[in-house]
Amino acid sequence: MPHLTAVPGAPPPDDCLARNDWICGEYLSTRRHILVDAVVQHLQITLVAVAIALVIAVPLAVVARRWGWAAGPVLALTTVLYTIPSLAMFSLLLPAYGLSATLVVAGLVLYSLTLLVRNILAGLRAVPEETRQAARGMGYGPVRLLLTVELPLALPAAMAGLRIATVSAVSLVTVGAIVGYGGLGNLIYSGMNTYFKAQVLTASVLCVVIAIAADLLLLGAGRLLTPWTRASRG
């Protein structure tokens, strides 16, 4: 793979691609569009999966909070799902989704769901009973209580869960390479088969950069959404 540019008969070029170096500027400039495509696929799969998980997790957590008996089964199910290794999870979904990006998204939704439900539920449970009673005393109905008191107060815990879920999803997308939809994982997989060091290292570093960037972005968003947590600290 690194020798694609070689002309028959001519002496092999002595650049970092030919030497198969770990760090190679030549790789970045010649394969930029491949890297951009992989990053875009990586981001798309992560975003779609986490967004779907969030939409499902909030009602599940609310139900588990409201009806105590539902909390046990919901938490047990999420623990079981989280224990199943990612490669096995993707494989179990193969009959349902085939070799598709949907399979990777579905697997990631199940993992993110687990982390989100646990954290949102913990946040809802941590709302002080006095606060709830005060709201009820002010004439708040159950829906208004949930939307304007309980969910906002559960937001810091929910954001913590969202950060963990997103960072984990970014890293797990790579395993999707087994079905050909692993974003940067595809480059790591093909780089492994062709012993292409620069490609493997570049894709790996980009994965970590995406994870850290997403984490910082969500940290900032969380601060903006919950100004009261900062006020109480300082």
Binding site: V170, S171, T174, V175, G185, I188, V200, A203, S204, C207
Partner: peptide, 11 residues
């Protein structure tokens, strides 16, 4: 958590 297992294995 941020470092993909698969990437470390291949590296």
């Amino acid at each position: 958590r941020a470092v993909p297992t698969f990437a470390v294995l291949v590296l």
